[in-house]
Amino acid sequence: TGYYDVLGVKPDASDNELKKAYRKMALKFHPDKNPDGAEQFKQISQAYEVLSDEKKRQIYDQ
């Protein structure tokens, strides 16, 4: 599964769309709200870390 799929956004998503999707998913799977969501929360955080950084995103998109 790709990072875009993890966040539920298209590859041409804007920074604002990425942030909005990340916040929505992070709230849904945060371990405090969803004890079984810890692994998914890590994936969401990693996806956002890469896609929100312009240089990392360019490398990922290659």
Results as ranks from 00 to 15, higher is better:
Thr1Phe: 15
Thr1Lys: 13
Thr1Val: 15
Gly2Tyr: 15
Gly2Ala: 11
Gly2Arg: 13
Tyr3Thr: 01
Tyr3Ser: 01
Tyr3Ile: 04
Tyr4Asp: 04
Tyr4Ile: 00
Tyr4Gln: 01
Asp5Met: 10
Asp5Cys: 14
Asp5Ile: 07
Asp5Pro: 02
Val6Glu: 02
Leu7Arg: 00
Val9Pro: 02
Val9His: 00
Val9Ala: 04
Lys10Tyr: 07
Lys10Leu: 11
Pro11Thr: 08
Pro11His: 08
Pro11Trp: 11
Asp12Phe: 07
Ala13Val: 12
Ala13Arg: 00
Ser14Trp: 01
Ser14His: 03
Asp15Cys: 15
Asp15Asn: 14
Asp15Glu: 12
Asp15His: 15
Asp15Arg: 14
Asn16Arg: 14
Asn16His: 14
Asn16Gln: 14
Asn16Phe: 13
Asn16Glu: 15
Glu17Leu: 03
Glu17Val: 05
Glu17Asn: 00
Leu18Tyr: 01
Leu18Thr: 01
Lys19Thr: 11
Lys19Val: 07
Lys20His: 10
Ala21Pro: 00
Ala21Tyr: 03
Ala21His: 03
Tyr22Ala: 01
Tyr22Ser: 00
Arg23Trp: 13
Arg23His: 12
Lys24Asn: 12
Lys24Leu: 13
Lys24Phe: 10
Met25Tyr: 05
Met25Trp: 07
Met25Lys: 08
Met25Thr: 02
Ala26Cys: 15
Leu27Ala: 14
Lys28Leu: 14
Lys28Thr: 08
Lys28Gly: 05
Lys28Gln: 10
Lys28Ser: 06
Phe29Ser: 03
Phe29Cys: 08
Phe29Val: 04
His30Val: 02
His30Glu: 03
His30Leu: 07
Pro31Trp: 05
Asp32Arg: 10
Asp32Met: 11
Asp32Glu: 10
Asp32Leu: 12
Asp32Ala: 10
Lys33Ser: 12
Asn34Trp: 08
Pro35Thr: 05
Pro35Trp: 04
Asp36Thr: 09
Asp36Lys: 12
Asp36Tyr: 06
Gly37His: 14
Gly37Arg: 07
Ala38Phe: 11
Ala38Trp: 13
Glu39Asn: 07
Gln40Glu: 08
Gln40Ala: 10
Gln40Phe: 14
Gln40Tyr: 13
Phe41Tyr: 11
Phe41Leu: 06
Phe41Thr: 01
Ile44Asn: 01
Ala47Ile: 06
Tyr48His: 02
Glu49Phe: 12
Glu49Thr: 09
Glu49Asn: 09
Glu49His: 12
Val50Leu: 06
Leu51Tyr: 00
Leu51Pro: 02
Ser52Asp: 02
Ser52Thr: 08
Ser52Trp: 06
Ser52Arg: 12
Lys55Glu: 09
Lys55Trp: 07
Lys56Cys: 13
Lys56Phe: 07
Arg57Val: 03
Arg57Gln: 05
Gln58Asp: 09
Gln58Leu: 12
Ile59Asp: 10
Ile59Leu: 12
Tyr60Ala: 04
Tyr60Val: 05
Tyr60His: 03
Asp61Ile: 06
Asp61Tyr: 06
Gln62Gly: 08
